[in-house]
């Protein structure tokens, strides 16, 4: 599994070099400010965890990096160059792959078509060039097996796989296409304990291969297993930003559960 990731990781990645840097980044949807003043650095070979409750701005943050919605304030630098992604394609071309919790795959399409969607292998460059279906089937099958995912039939619709398997196919796809930065949006939210473990192992493996990983979650336990750097968002603002050495799991958990507010609440509710 680790070998697969190392095999496809970009060779020029050096642990510690910043891949994505956000400075004072924010996003407004009309009058609503979903995110403001966020600083985030994703280094090669590190996992940056972004934690937050529902509506904290986690999704907005990754949508900026993955090119779904461009930011409206602050700067975003990728590999040292300032960027303003206006489509997911641009972000993908910059080596940023995103695995979404809800919109990872197209359920009615075959596993192999999903694996290669948007990056199909063709027998030629002309507009109506046929797909190299045989090669795509074989590669998809081999890559999935290498990651320990065994599907009954590579031609079956991906909707027939379990949620965890679908998530893993999406990660395998991102890794295969040579991502430099991997964004995982709540990868463990819909999964059982065992499947979460598999996803967390992939996350660690991707980090060890030198990729920069952004791990979005609302589960501090999962985050603390793999994270090197933790950011907690609340109502679009950053309320905690600490390295692993500066923070304990208890602190993360308390902060996630509401921190000071929770303490006040418990005082209020005391009988």
């Amino acid at each position: 599994m680790t070998d697969t990731i190392a095999e496809h990781a970009a060779p020029d990645l050096k642990a510690g070099t910043p891949l994505v840097e956000m400075e004072g980044c924010g996003k407004s949807y009309g009058a609503i400010r979903a995110l403001e003043g966020v600083n985030l650095t994703v280094n090669a070979g590190e996992v940056a965890c972004v934690l937050g409750d529902n509506g904290a701005g986690k999704s907005t943050l990754i949508k900026i990096i993955s090119g779904l919605h461009p930011h409206t304030e602050g700067t975003l630098r990728v590999d040292g160059k300032e960027r303003h992604f206006s489509s997911p394609r641009e972000s993908l071309d910059a080596g940023i792959a995103t695995v979404y919790q809800d919109l990872a795959v197209v359920g009615l399409m075959e596993v192999w078509r999903n694996f290669f969607l948007g990056s199909e292998i063709r027998k030629g460059k002309y507009p109506m060039a046929p797909l190299d279906i045989k090669a795509m089937r074989e590669i998809a099958d081999a890559e999935l097996q290498k990651m320990g995912i065994f599907v009954k039939d590579i031609n079956q619709p991906i909707g027939t796989l379990s949620g965890g398997q679908r998530q893993c196919v999406a990660i395998a796809r991102a890794v295969y296409f040579g991502a430099r930065v991997l964004i995982l949006d709540e990868p463990t939210a819909a999964l059982g304990v065992k499947q979460s473990g598999v996803v967390l192992k992939y996350t660690a493996a991707a980090r060890d291969a030198g990729l920069g990983v952004v791990f979005i979650t609302h589960n501090p336990h999962h985050a603390y297993l793999v994270g090197d750097h933790f950011i907690i968002l609340k109502l679009g603002r950053r309320v905690l930003d600490k390295k692993r050495s500066e923070v304990s799991l208890e602190e993360l958990t308390t902060e996630m559960a509401g921190g000071q507010e929770l303490a006040e609440l418990s005082h209020e509710l005391k009988r």
Binding site: L68, P88, V105, V106, M109, L117, G118, S119
Partner: peptide
């Protein structure tokens, strides 16, 4: 097929 099956997914993979 992808655009009709899941437009958001299709867009997200480029």
């Amino acid at each position: 097929t992808a655009a009709g099956g899941n437009q958001a997914s299709a867009r997200a993979v480029g």
